[in-house]
Write a protein that binds this DNA or RNA. Sequence first.
RNA 1: GUCCCCAUCGUCUAGAGGCCUAGGACACCUCCCUUUCACGGAGGCGACCGGGGUUCGAAUCCCCGUGGGGACGCCA
Length: 463
Amino acid sequence: MTVRTRFAPSPTGFLHIGGARTALFSWAYAKKHGGEFILRIEDTDVARSTPEAVQAILDGMAWLGLSHDEGPFYQMQRMETYKKIIQKMLAEGTAYYCYCTKEELEALRESQMQQNIKPRYDGRWRPEEGKVLPEPPADIPPVIRFKNPQTGNVVWHDLVKGEISIANQELDDLIIARADGTPTYNFCVVVDDREMGITQVIRGDDHVNNTPRQINMLKALGATVPQYAHLSMILGDDGQKLSKRHGAVSVMQYHEDGYLPEAVLNYLARLGWSHGDEEIFSMQQFCEWFDLDHITPSAAQFNTEKLKWLNAHYIKLVDSDYLAEDITDRLAKLGVNVTAEPKLGAVLDLYKERVHTLNELAENIAYFYRKPRIDQAAAEKHLTLDIKPVLAMLIEALQSAEWAAEHIHHAIDAAVTKNQLKFPKIAMPLRVAVTGIAQSPSIDQVMALLGKEEVLNRIRRVL
RNA sequence: GUCCCCAUCGUCUAGAGGCCUAGGACACCUCCCUUUCACGGAGGCGACCGGGGUUCGAAUCCCCGUGGGGACGCCA
């Protein structure tokens, strides 16, 4: 049987890091088994779903390169299917009308909570052999409930967590269609997972409690029950749960912040899953290795430091043309226009091994394309009165130097030796004058790239 | 409250009863490289939640605690 997995987000917000990992694992599982990965948009909550959120999810998936083989399917476009099945269930007696008002249910819940029992629908409209139901009130539009089995256990072998067993007594008759006729989440999932032939449902941990209900409905519909794999959640850097107001950021924010999708993907792959001691691997490699057996059942804390480390690694490897284009954009955002000279490619080669993010890279090389902003502290420390004459003298020495790193180095060395100084003594003042700060790659290499005139101007500026 | 799940270095994890004196990675510390800062290289610090079993032998299996998380919607 062909493996078919799906990612089924509800479009009520952007694609965050937890959703991205769920999508990644689902995608990888399909790839590993030569199956299909389906994207389904669960937009039945009309009040909270937005087209912007749909787009944000699509954008996030595209940035990460998690392409789907089928879809996106939108549940709101599948209403006829759902309604047909609900009618069938009503006819077969696996679903029934319930005329309770929201207020009535609220009161019921309240009283159950007070008695310290689990809040559940009490089945007052549930038809039963020999049971006399109240007369349906004419003014109340009914909801439709699933007639859940009342005895026995629902047991499944979770591909991540192992065997899970939940007593039917713990479950109540959930609403499958609202008073306005629209079907609800648990029901739509069941219909779709069946009709789309999903073989493995890989989703977040928070759905464990929905699973027995879904299995019961699947069985009531005579459907094959798929396998389930419940992924534990991802906690924020501080160990706290991710939420809207706390750390839950869009994956696109990582793009903004200068992370490469390769790094984010590699990081996410390793969060909660492992393959021995392997830390760095391509998505192709990941798809070959991926399995559900090596997923950790416990929650994982996000660690930005490690993501940065991976990002630094991938920045060193990223394609030069792509990098140049990306950095040009980031520099533009900083108000810096890249000019033909110095060559951006050469500048990037000098810097890309030294940074953790693309933003850092852009910021670090900005001085090549605009007047350096002299750091006050660095200037005070290194551009001292006694060193300025040496710098002035250096201008002359450099004027006649052939403009290549090696020759620049020799010119500086010679001039400095004449003053009974050592190279390091002049390197720092020079560095501050040319770059504005006290850290840079080899100063002779920086100078070589920057060009003779520009370098001399920058030295004159600080005298 | 009820039900469900989880528990190895600070963090991500390896670990399927003897290979464990518990391995790797990030972070941190030290040293090396060095014109600074990085990069890189070599070392170091650092963990099996507690208690009972089972077993010749348990990080691994079982039970009980404890701690953490999730779910209990006409949300998904």
